[in-house]
Amino acid sequence: MSAWFERFKFDGRRLILRNFSFQFFSLVMPAGFYLLFTKVMVTGNVPASFNVTYMGSMIVYSGTINALFGIAAFLQRDREAGVLQWCWLSPTGIRPYYLSIGCWSLLMNTSSVVVLGGIAMGVNHVSLSVAQWGAIAGIAILGQLSTMLLGVLISFVERAETLSVLSNLITFPMAIISGLWWPLGLLPNWLQPIGKLMPTYLINDWLGRVATHGTLLTSDILGTGAWMIGLLVVVIVSVRLLLKRSDGVVRA
C-alpha cells in the first residue's frame, strides 16, 4: 500500500502540479475558449443551452488534448527516458505505473469538469441539478477512457517527432469533424456521418443531452462502449506483442 501511495504521489507531482503543459493546454486553453465563445466574441443574447453544450464540448476537448498530447507524450517520454524499464526492474513491476497514470488521467479529466463547470456556473450562470453535474463528471471521466486508450496506443511510436505529428493529425481533425469547435451542421453533408462516428462526438453528444435535457441516447453509450472495448483490445494486444519480443521489456 505504501508503495502504491508513493507511486501515486510521485506521478501526481509530475503529471499535474509541475506540468505546465497540462495546466495550460488542458485547463487554461479550453477555459479561455469557453469564455471567448460564450462571453467575448458574441453579439446579442447567447441561448442558455449553448453555454451548457459548449461547456460539454470544451470538457471533451480538454480530455482529448490531455489524452492525445499530454498522456501520450508523457508515456512516450517515460519509455524513452528508461522509466518503464526502471519500473519493470523494481519488485512491483510496471502494473502500478500504468494504474497510477490511469488514475491520474481520470482525475485530470475531473479537474477540467471542475474548472469549466466553475466558470459556467460563476460567469455564465449555468444552473444544473446535482444529478446532472454528477452525470457530467461521470461521463467526462469514464466516457473519455476511449480517447485515453487512443493516447496510450499512439504513445508506442518510437520517436517523439512522430508522436507529435500523430497527435496533431488525430486531435484537430477529430475535434473539428466531431463538432467540438463548431456545430456539426456547418460541415459538408458527406463529412457529418463520419463525424458522428468519432468517439469525441459520441461523448460530446452524451454530455450535451445529459446537461440540457437530462436524457440519454443509447447509440451514444453503445458507440462509446464499442470504441472503448475496441481500443482496449488493440492496446492489450500491442503491449503483449511488445513484451513478446526478446527485447520487448526494454521497449514496452
Binding site: 505504501s2 508503495a3 501511495f5 508513493e6 507511486r7 510521485f10 507531482r13 509530475r14 502540479l17 509541475r18 506540468n19 517520454r77 517515460d78 527516458a81 528508461g82 522509466v83 526502471w86 523494481s90 519488485p91 512491483t92
Partner: peptide
Amino acid sequence: LVIRGVTVQEVLRLAAAQYP
C-alpha cells in the same frame, strides 16, 4: 534516469517504497 518534474529525494523515496 532523468525524470521531469521530480527531485532527487522524491525519486529515491519512490524507489525505496518498492523494496521490502
